[in-house]
Deep mutational scan, measured.
Amino acid sequence: MAEQVALSRTQVCGILREELFQGDAFHQSDTHIFIIMGASGDLAKKKIYPTIWWLFRDGLLPENTFIVGYARSRLTVADIRKQSEPFFKATPEEKLKLEDFFARNSYVAGQYDDAASYQRLNSHMNALHLGSQANRLFYLALPPTVYEAVTKNIHESCMSQIGWNRIIVEKPFGRDLQSSDRLSNHISSLFREDQIYRIDHYLGKEMVQNLMVLRFANRIFGPIWNRDNIACVILTFKEPFGTEGRGGYFDEFGIIRDVMQNHLLQMLCLVAMEKPASTNSDDVRDEKVKVLKCISEVQANNVVLGQYVGNPDGEGEATKGYLDDPTVPRGSTTATFAAVVLYVENERWDGVPFILRCGKALNERKAEVRLQFHDVAGDIFHQQCKRNELVIRVQPNEAVYTKMMTKKPGMFFNPEESELDLTYGNRYKNVKLPDAYERLILDVFCGSQMHFVRSDELREAWRIFTPLLHQIELEKPKPIPYIYGSRGPTEADELMKRVGFQYEGTYKWVNP
């Protein structure tokens, strides 16, 4: 592979701008107003304001973009700056750019259920340069409990009458099928589907988006991507930290609602779906819905739930269990780990287990898709061969690698495990991989909904998990304890083995 010439960040961002501006969906010269509902909250200060700053800094926003914060707290732009700027990672050389960014910011205080507050917000936006005809993007960085009041008031008082209007809704989209349907029906009564952007930030990850290209742009994968060759698929999300004093919020939802029903299920769809007619948003989402419709409700015998306990040999936070978090209700049975087996009941995947695993306070930070292939028929190497695996590593250190057998150097035919490896950090030294939120917010500006969740996708996802969630809430089974920093409950490994996964433990990928 030829040595790549190092590029400056300015040059890299210039390439990104060229890609972005050559499309006809990006209205570079139009006025846009980006409204952050819930501007005083954690999500706004840690993710949304920093993301908008990065896009502005790199010249990736339309030229005439204004940012308006809205929340109940009586704040000023200076207050917003004070709480969000520490997350910007701005350099001293960017000081003038930073001043320009905050000059485009404003803030309006108001209630979430008060019509007069929204009329005041609308008047404020109209007073901005060309504000009355601007395109408006409303980001709901809010708890779902206020979605209905907020969307109703936005629709009645704050819509642009000339430009387009788009609304970005953060997960969780309800707690179960019934609450999700209620919320979807409410929002759909106010906005068209092409105006609604239900954001799952995992769909903005580079390697998640790469799944489609790997599958449908490489001839070698087509013939082997089926039940005849693939023994099982494992989708993993692991965090090495616990709730760390923020367990009160987590306890309301648990690990299945927080990660599995959305992030992991979306990745499953991209692995299992048929080739779409095109890369058009609805063509892709149509195929994802077909996959979900082929999955039956989760069966309790295919589920393992766990909850982390303190590690007596650990240090600091590792010595504390979930129930030691003062914000967690006493005696909570909320799971911090889950392993679930699903089956896609169609011709391509009949009988292939899709194993979804996620948890907190585990032994490493990792998100990946792992396809394990069947054993080689007619073994001539005296059971020395391990199964081939194709691994798409989402985070950290984005990579695609194939675990395969090669001859060990020497005189004899002794096979050993090795890999074919594409590590993004080595291959793409001159490429700026956008943060997931950067990519998705740019998608909203461009009107691309491919990486957002459609209402029928959402409904099918909740259909699969709601009976299990209701059973857990009714019966309150005690989750299996696992030690902070471990791989999780051993019962999860036993479940995976029972459905056909072979864990060798003899080879570990190392970032080159």
Rank of each mutant, 00 (worst) to 15 (best):
residue 183 L to A: 12
residue 257 R to V: 09
residue 204 G to Y: 15
residue 239 E to C: 10
residue 51 T to H: 14
residue 149 A to Q: 05
residue 240 P to E: 15
residue 245 G to I: 10
residue 96 L to Q: 13
residue 48 I to T: 04
residue 113 D to W: 08
residue 6 A to C: 08
residue 54 W to Q: 12
residue 112 Y to Q: 02
residue 9 R to Q: 11
residue 113 D to C: 08
residue 134 A to E: 13
residue 22 Q to K: 07
residue 140 L to A: 03
residue 161 Q to Y: 11
residue 17 R to C: 06
residue 98 L to P: 00
residue 215 R to V: 01
residue 152 K to S: 08
residue 215 R to Q: 02
residue 242 G to K: 04
residue 208 V to C: 15
residue 131 G to I: 02
residue 45 K to I: 09
residue 173 F to P: 03
residue 51 T to E: 13
residue 110 G to S: 02
residue 144 P to Y: 10
residue 201 H to C: 06
residue 26 F to M: 09
residue 169 V to W: 06
residue 173 F to W: 11
residue 41 G to Q: 07
residue 63 E to C: 07
residue 92 P to Y: 08
residue 7 L to R: 07
residue 160 S to Y: 02
residue 216 F to Q: 08
residue 154 I to E: 00
residue 208 V to L: 11
residue 16 L to A: 05
residue 151 T to Y: 09
residue 171 K to H: 07
residue 40 S to W: 03
residue 164 W to Y: 04
residue 184 S to I: 09
residue 191 F to P: 00
residue 39 A to H: 00
residue 4 Q to S: 06
residue 34 F to N: 01
residue 84 S to L: 08
residue 9 R to A: 06
residue 98 L to Q: 02
residue 22 Q to H: 03
residue 39 A to Y: 00
residue 143 P to R: 05
residue 230 I to F: 02
residue 243 T to K: 11
residue 247 G to M: 12
residue 211 L to T: 07
residue 24 D to F: 15
residue 73 S to G: 08
residue 152 K to F: 08
residue 30 D to S: 08
residue 228 D to A: 10
residue 84 S to W: 03
residue 212 M to Y: 09
residue 179 S to G: 04
residue 97 K to C: 07
residue 215 R to H: 03
residue 87 F to T: 03
residue 137 L to Y: 03
residue 200 D to I: 14
residue 208 V to F: 13
residue 199 I to L: 08
residue 150 V to E: 00
residue 118 Y to I: 10
residue 22 Q to S: 11
residue 156 E to C: 11
residue 194 D to V: 04
residue 66 F to Y: 15
residue 57 R to M: 02
residue 89 K to T: 09
residue 100 D to S: 13
residue 14 G to R: 12
residue 214 L to A: 12
residue 116 A to C: 05
residue 12 V to T: 14
residue 196 I to Y: 00
residue 211 L to Y: 04
residue 66 F to G: 02
residue 43 L to W: 14
residue 77 V to Q: 05
residue 57 R to T: 02
residue 187 I to R: 02
residue 46 K to Q: 12
residue 161 Q to L: 11
residue 119 Q to M: 10
residue 252 E to M: 09
residue 221 F to P: 03
residue 6 A to S: 12
residue 147 Y to V: 15
residue 188 S to L: 08
residue 186 H to S: 05
residue 95 K to W: 09
residue 231 A to Q: 12
residue 65 T to H: 01
residue 19 E to Q: 08
residue 19 E to C: 13
residue 125 M to I: 06
residue 62 P to I: 02
residue 138 F to G: 00
residue 136 R to Q: 03
residue 142 L to T: 07
residue 184 S to N: 09
residue 18 E to K: 14
residue 26 F to G: 07
residue 76 T to F: 04
residue 2 A to E: 08
residue 80 I to R: 02
residue 201 H to I: 03
residue 95 K to Q: 14
residue 197 Y to S: 00
residue 205 K to R: 15
residue 252 E to P: 03
residue 221 F to G: 03
residue 139 Y to E: 02
residue 101 F to R: 00
residue 246 R to V: 11
residue 111 Q to T: 07
residue 123 S to V: 09
residue 239 E to R: 03
residue 74 R to V: 09
residue 160 S to C: 08
residue 116 A to N: 10
residue 108 V to M: 08
residue 82 K to P: 02
residue 108 V to S: 02
residue 176 D to A: 04
residue 14 G to Y: 05
residue 254 G to L: 01
residue 240 P to S: 06
residue 153 N to H: 11
residue 188 S to I: 06
residue 65 T to K: 00
residue 23 G to K: 09
residue 175 R to W: 09
residue 13 C to W: 04
residue 65 T to C: 14
residue 196 I to V: 12
residue 216 F to W: 10
residue 249 Y to K: 15
residue 166 R to L: 01
residue 52 I to D: 02
residue 221 F to C: 14
residue 99 E to I: 05
residue 199 I to M: 07
residue 204 G to S: 15
residue 174 G to S: 06
residue 125 M to P: 00
residue 239 E to Q: 13
residue 97 K to A: 05
residue 181 D to Y: 05
residue 156 E to G: 10
residue 232 C to N: 14
residue 231 A to M: 08
residue 246 R to A: 11
residue 35 I to K: 01
residue 70 Y to F: 14
residue 138 F to M: 01
residue 140 L to M: 11
residue 168 I to A: 09
residue 123 S to K: 12
residue 190 L to G: 02
residue 137 L to W: 01
residue 216 F to K: 02
residue 162 I to E: 09
residue 67 I to P: 00
residue 67 I to E: 00
residue 99 E to K: 07
residue 16 L to E: 05
residue 248 G to Y: 13
residue 150 V to R: 00
residue 241 F to E: 13
residue 26 F to E: 06
residue 103 A to T: 09
residue 203 L to T: 15
residue 185 N to L: 08
residue 14 G to L: 04
residue 81 R to H: 03
residue 227 R to Q: 07
residue 217 A to I: 00
residue 247 G to V: 09
residue 208 V to N: 11
residue 103 A to V: 03
residue 73 S to W: 04
residue 228 D to S: 07
residue 64 N to A: 05
residue 30 D to N: 15
residue 83 Q to Y: 12
residue 144 P to C: 05
residue 147 Y to L: 15
residue 134 A to I: 10
residue 135 N to C: 11
residue 231 A to Y: 05
residue 255 I to F: 01
residue 101 F to N: 00
residue 172 P to Y: 06
residue 192 R to K: 09
residue 64 N to E: 11
residue 39 A to G: 05
residue 109 A to Q: 12
residue 208 V to E: 09
residue 105 N to H: 07
residue 10 T to C: 08
residue 139 Y to L: 03
residue 141 A to I: 02
residue 165 N to V: 05
residue 199 I to T: 03
residue 142 L to E: 11
residue 223 P to F: 01
residue 131 G to R: 06
residue 233 V to S: 00
residue 5 V to F: 12
residue 64 N to T: 09
residue 9 R to H: 09
residue 43 L to V: 03
residue 196 I to N: 00
residue 128 L to G: 02
residue 124 H to E: 09
residue 225 W to G: 00
residue 12 V to N: 05
residue 84 S to K: 02
residue 220 I to L: 09
residue 38 G to P: 03
residue 155 H to L: 03
residue 173 F to A: 09
residue 178 Q to E: 05
residue 54 W to Y: 13
residue 43 L to F: 13
residue 230 I to M: 04
residue 230 I to A: 02
residue 58 D to C: 08
residue 20 L to G: 03
residue 52 I to P: 00
residue 34 F to S: 02
residue 209 Q to K: 11
residue 137 L to P: 00
residue 168 I to H: 00
residue 38 G to I: 00
